[in-house]
Design a binder for these strands. Structure first.
Lengths: 214, 214
DNA sequence: TCAATATCGATATTTTTTTATCTATTATAG
DNA sequence: CTATAATAGATAAAAAAATATCGATATTGA
């Protein structure tokens, strides 16, 4: 017999949780008490069975003929993702994309708080961008240790990606949100989430070519 | 017996194609003639069998003991994705993220050319951002028809997402790259690719919580 | 109280994706 | 010219995910 690990992978499920959360928060604003999986499914163009199955990963249970308690479900998803209290993060690479992410207020609703940014370009140092201070790369290790920051957001040019990632790892960063297209090599124990825009563009291109190509 | 459609879905495969392309282009720069699936797999931390299987979707064939012709493989992937000649696109919503995307030069290597931007805010109209003109939303339909643009990049605030998407569809746009977290309702025949950052953040959060939580 | 219905949760089935195994081919070395 | 090793490609197996089915339960209205 095999013990059930409290959480197997279920990556597709995890990717859908923020969508549930978004709808649920809106319902909170409208003072709903309960919501059915069927309703969530309709809002998100998903299958009701899939919604219910996804929600089980958080441990929440619904009641027949009633649905799920809205507040409890929000709490369960947030707890599952660790979004109740914000994770502090560094952002490295204050280019177009890095600047945009620094200015995105929505992260705070997603348990993420960017506390400092870093860049190799001296011209960008010591100015604040969207209220966040920008430091030279050399300060990463020192600040990471002092502020106990463990997450890094990587928005540097492709050519610098691996070197900066190495620097983050040395500084004790254990989670990297990688916006470069580079497949980073990191030691075990460091988790990396790749966010390569070209993947999505490829899917869209393929769909488009297939939709009108034939 | 069942006919093989020339391309079944194979979405995960399609998402990996840009990564192969990136490595292959680098090899082109170093004047490699051939490359083995094994080498590509190493570079991208993938399984060699998966690489070979993925590449078959493009129709490219390799030769034993040699591998794949680099130039031919690049051409095959680009042809499969329709990236040989650029698709022209509109971008709607010139906020932080929209501005960043307007400034991203890499799209041109991915068969995408943003030809115009749109925004609801009068203060943003009639200025160029990263060399791209910004027009009011009202001009979408007219310009889409005249320039025969079929792809729209959606970077508006969540609250405006569905309305703007509707406007794009009316204007004849058939492909929407959706950077809002909204599950858009669109008529059949319109392809939508969602690029919700919070999905990736959720995965990273779950991995992180799981890595040190236990 | 009782029947009807909406809804959850569990189980089963199908589909998709990944991984493994095996065979055939071809460049290279002897 | 032959043996060997690296590699593609096909087939099969395993794992993961999506989808369907069914029984149980709680609310509603008669």
């Amino acid at each position: 017999m095999e013990f059930e690990s409290p959480k197997m992978s279920r990556l597709p499920t995890i990717r859908r949780l923020p969508a549930y959360l978004r709808v649920l928060r809106q319902l909170q604003g409208e003072a709903w008490e309960h919501v059915s999986g069927t309703y969530l499914a309709e809002q998100l163009s998903l299958d009701p069975v899939q919604v219910r199955k996804d929600l089980t990963i958080t441990g929440i249970v619904g009641t027949p003929r009633v649905g799920f308690m809205v507040d409890d479900t929000v709490a369960a998803i947030e707890a599952f993702l660790g979004w109740q209290n914000a994770t502090e993060a560094f952002l490295v690479g204050v280019g177009n994309l890095g600047t945009a992410l620094l200015g995105y207020a929505g992260f705070e609703r997603h348990g993420l708080k960017i506390v400092a940014a870093f860049d190799a370009d001296p011209a960008k140092i010591d100015v604040e961008i969207h209220g966040k201070p920008v430091y030279p790369l050399e300060k990463i290790a020192d600040l990471a240790a002092r502020l106990r920051v463990r997450m890094g957001i990587l928005t540097v040019p492709e050519i610098a990606a691996q070197a900066v990632a190495d620097r983050l790892v040395v500084a004790g960063i254990t989670a990297i949100w990688n916006f470069t297209p580079v497949a980073l090599k990191t030691p075990g124990g460091v988790v990396v989430q790749n966010e390569d825009l070209s993947c999505g563009l490829a899917v869209l291109s393929a769909k488009l070519r297939n939709a009108d190509g034939s």
